[in-house]
Simulated scan of single mutants.
Amino acid sequence: MRKIGVILFLCTALLPLLLSCESNFRDVQRINSVGFNPVGESENIDLKYTDSGKVKSILVSPLMRDYTNLEFGFNEFPKGVHLTLFDTQGKKTFVDGDYAIVYEDTDVIDLQGHVRIYTEDGKELTTEQLYYDQKNEWFYTEKFFKFTDVNGSFLQGPGIDFSRDFKVMNTQRSQGSINEVK
């Protein structure tokens, strides 16, 4: 009987303490949480970037979140993007990614997930993460990639950087097979 009394005493003495800990824990969580809310959200966007009256790129996405109110502002595309890039002759390069972030100050796009870049003439590169420097029209990744073309040639390995039209490519440790152009 004495043990039951001690247990009841401890429970009644510790219960307010435990409840106050829960309350304090939630307060601490709220204090430590950063106000990381977007300034705005846009659904089903179709953005066209023009320069001197010519369309340079088109970005299509089901959802964009705008965090440009932060010190290092960015736009997030949590449901993926489809990007169409136009060169000076009007040739198109297409880029698809499951997730993307566009950093406002650097004009760098970070594409993630199943990333695929392909051209009208049949060149294609796939990887799990790809960065695109919009100012220099240059792509790069440190992740594993695979590049193929219409001739059946391929190149694969970790790390590559290349021009938007694939005319200039720098690789680190790649391997592949180059077939004769027909």
Results as ranks from 00 to 15, higher is better:
residue 70 L to A: 02
residue 114 H to A: 09
residue 111 L to P: 01
residue 82 H to C: 09
residue 106 T to E: 09
residue 76 E to N: 11
residue 64 M to S: 11
residue 76 E to D: 15
residue 100 A to C: 02
residue 64 M to W: 04
residue 90 G to E: 05
residue 80 G to M: 06
residue 93 T to K: 04
residue 70 L to P: 12
residue 100 A to Y: 05
residue 96 D to F: 08
residue 61 S to H: 01
residue 68 T to A: 01
residue 112 Q to F: 05
residue 77 F to P: 02
residue 92 K to C: 07
residue 99 Y to I: 00
residue 115 V to N: 08
residue 79 K to T: 12
residue 87 D to S: 10
residue 115 V to Q: 06
residue 101 I to P: 06
residue 73 G to C: 04
residue 109 I to Q: 08
residue 109 I to Y: 15
residue 72 F to P: 00
residue 91 K to L: 04
residue 102 V to Q: 14
residue 65 R to D: 06
residue 77 F to G: 06
residue 69 N to T: 09
residue 72 F to E: 13
residue 111 L to T: 09
residue 83 L to T: 04
residue 81 V to K: 02
residue 106 T to H: 10
residue 108 V to E: 13
residue 90 G to I: 13
residue 65 R to Q: 13
residue 80 G to I: 12
residue 78 P to Y: 10
residue 90 G to D: 07
residue 104 E to M: 08
residue 99 Y to H: 14
residue 114 H to Q: 13
residue 114 H to N: 12
residue 84 T to F: 02
residue 91 K to E: 12
residue 97 G to V: 02
residue 85 L to F: 10
residue 68 T to S: 15
residue 87 D to K: 06
residue 82 H to D: 14
residue 70 L to D: 08
residue 79 K to A: 09
residue 118 Y to T: 09
residue 77 F to S: 06
residue 71 E to G: 07
residue 75 N to R: 09
residue 96 D to E: 04
residue 67 Y to P: 11
residue 88 T to W: 02
residue 76 E to H: 10
residue 79 K to D: 14
residue 103 Y to F: 15
residue 90 G to T: 12
residue 73 G to R: 05
residue 101 I to H: 11
residue 113 G to Q: 04
residue 80 G to E: 07
residue 82 H to I: 10
residue 80 G to Q: 03
residue 97 G to F: 00
residue 63 L to T: 13
residue 75 N to W: 10
residue 82 H to G: 11
residue 67 Y to H: 07
residue 77 F to V: 07
residue 115 V to T: 14
residue 101 I to D: 12
residue 108 V to N: 12
residue 96 D to S: 05
residue 85 L to V: 06
residue 102 V to L: 15
residue 94 F to L: 01
residue 112 Q to V: 10
residue 91 K to C: 02
residue 77 F to R: 02
residue 113 G to T: 08
residue 73 G to E: 02
residue 74 F to W: 11
residue 118 Y to E: 05
residue 102 V to D: 15
residue 63 L to W: 14
residue 86 F to P: 14
residue 109 I to R: 06
residue 109 I to H: 04
residue 64 M to T: 08
residue 94 F to P: 01
residue 71 E to N: 08
residue 111 L to G: 03
residue 99 Y to A: 03
residue 113 G to F: 04
residue 94 F to K: 00
residue 86 F to C: 05
residue 99 Y to L: 05
residue 89 Q to E: 13
residue 118 Y to F: 15
